[in-house]
Nucleic acid binder design. Structure first.
Lengths: 223, 223
DNA sequence: GCTTAGTCTGAACAATTGTTCAATATAAGA
DNA sequence: TCTTATATTGAACAATTGTTCAGACTAAGC
């Protein structure tokens, strides 16, 4: 991350400067999502944010740091949404099914990236990009792996017969389906007409619930 | 595609020149897969191929055309593998199950991108990139949609209760899982130790067979 | 109100980008 | 063998890239 994070601040950043930084991150998020890291220039970001090129560096540091900041900015809130959903499900005492746990992971993401405001839509596509590119492995590990581990643990407890590899594999399949919905739902040809996001989300859960039970259920794993 | 494709040839290309072109496409494939379209420069490709920069243009045309050629070069053979597998399955008279049809689509791809030679591994990652980026929608439609349509048709016949949207959605989930295995199997933490590709391929089929039967089976779709 | 850390501007840097062109070497077709 | 279409070279083009810097502006903290 940028050295600005480490430097000793003698004055609190003004509200206006915080707004500027947010505007820069928003612009970067939009463009990185649309054209990828290498397809986006710092100048494009500056132009969209309505600021000078040097100001992007001032607030975001080198381009790679800026990218990292864009990813991590929404990662924490997203993880919180997922983990609190899981916590409240567990504290409910009943209904702790595989499907319900999967929903705690999938729905906070899809609710925002499919239906909600534009920034989250862009962020969704961006996550799909990051997850597909081994180049950003560190960023992905930093921002998403801890929460994913919690869910894999929970699922493993719910399906004690399954090996860790089986649960992890099924989890990756589910994540890939979730990201496909956000980033390339246009692949589902007819989907354009039916804009009911809840349907897609539900279909994904149907698909993955059955998939998990098949892969991680009590069936003979070697046959 | 390049105008070179349209131009009237008065002489057959020499064997050496065909080799050069193949070498350029190989280099482009490797680098595009590793760093994406924008992250790869024509000069990088030329250097890896051991030729002059201008020669890349001579054989591949503009960068976008070169990219298109790299994708389509292996698309035809791949489609043939899938379609002949499906044909021989159908002509066998029996065993025409959902899982068997899915295997006809998945296995020709995973067998090569997971186990086989390096060029196919790179190609697999490249397809994942193309599929995730709406920018290459035309290329993807050109190279893969026709074959995909055949399989969706076949699956729809096997599961007549399902709507086209349900089959398409499930199919997209399966494709996304398949691409995740090729391009980001590192996401499955422990997978590095078990290098048995057949296991992953089989796990994906288990997962998707159950998913299809859940989403496209006779269950009440609106409840 | 003064001081100055922090914000912002405008311009410039060197490096790299995709593409083009004239000239040379090579080999296919007569 | 001779002609010439094609393959290949080397150099150059203008445009864009990420980054930096000195100076002007603004407002936070005394």
């Amino acid at each position: 991350m940028a050295k600005a994070e480490v430097a000793i601040r003698r004055r609190a950043p003004s509200k206006k400067s915080l707004e500027t930084k947010a505007r820069i991150l928003d612009a970067a998020e939009t463009l990185f999502a649309r054209r990828g890291f290498d397809g986006t220039s710092v100048r494009d970001i500056a132009k969209l944010a309505g600021v000078q090129v040097a100001l992007v560096h001032h607030h975001g540091g080198p381009k790679e740091d800026l990218f990292h900041q864009v990813i991590s900015r929404r990662a924490k809130p997203l993880s919180d949404l997922r983990l609190t959903a899981l916590e409240s499900l567990k504290s409910a005492g009943e209904g702790l099914t595989v499907r319900a746990v999967l929903a705690c992971f999938v729905e906070p993401f899809l609710d925002r990236t499919l239906k909600d405001e534009a920034p989250w839509r862009a962020y969704g596509r961006l996550i799909a990009l990051v997850s597909a590119d081994e180049r950003w492995r560190e960023i992905a590990a930093d921002c998403f792996d801890p929460t994913a581990a919690v869910f894999v643990d929970e699922l493993s407890e719910l399906m004690p017969e399954a090996t860790r590899l089986q649960v992890s594999s099924a989890f990756v399949f589910m994540v890939s389906g979730m990201l496909a919905l956000t980033a390339s739902s246009w692949r589902i040809g007819a989907v354009a007409q039916s804009d009911d996001a809840a349907d897609l989300s539900g279909t994904l859960l149907d698909f993955c619930e059955a998939g998990f039970s098949s892969v991680c259920g009590g069936a003979n794993p070697s046959a």
